[in-house]
Amino acid sequence: MAGFGGQGLMFLGKLTVQTMMDEGMHVTYFPSYGAEVRGGTANCHVIVSSDEIASPVVEMADTLVVMNQPSYERFKTRLSPDGALLANVSLIELTDPPPAEYILEIPATRIATDLGDVRCANMTMMGAYNQMRSFVPIEKLIEQMKRAFGEGKSAIWDLNAKALEVGRDLAREQLAASSQSSTT
C-alpha cells in the first residue's frame, strides 16, 4: 500500500491487520519510516496469512494499493502477475500497466471529494480492497473503522462508512464485469 504522506495509507494498513488479527489470522504490518515519509511516498507492507509469517517484507505483492502516481511507478514492478492492482485513478494515469489478474480503477479522490471530504479516499480504497480479497463482511469492517477512529471522531463515522460502501460497490461491479469478459 502506498501513497502520499497524509493520504491515510498507513492507517489503512493498520486497519487491515487489526481486522484480520481479530479474524484469527497471522498478520504483520511494516511501514516505511524516517526521512522517506516527508515528501515522496509513504508505504507499508501488510501480510495476512493462515501460517506463521517469516518475513514482514513483501517481495512480490498479491495486492497493490496505490494512491498516487509516484507510488504506482515505484511499486508496479513488485506486483505478482496473478495479483490485483487497486489504483486511485483520480490521481494515477495507468501508463504501462503491469501484468495483473485484476486491475481495479477506483477514482477514490473524486469519490471522497463528492462525499464531502477528500480525507476519506483511503476508506474508499479499503472498501474495494476488502471486497477484492473477501476479508470480512462490510459491517465488521465498519465496526473496526469506528473503533480505530474512536468515540472522539464519531462525527466522521458515517462519512467513512459511506466511503467503504461506495468502494465496495465499485469493486463488486468491476470484478463482475471482468469475470464476465473472461468467461465470454
Binding site: 491487520v17 504490518y29 514482514p56
Partner: peptide, 9 residues
C-alpha cells in the same frame, strides 16, 4: 530497526 518498526499481535 525492522523489529522496532514492524507491528505484530
Amino acid at each position: 530497526g525492522r523489529l522496532g518498526q514492524m507491528m505484530e499481535p
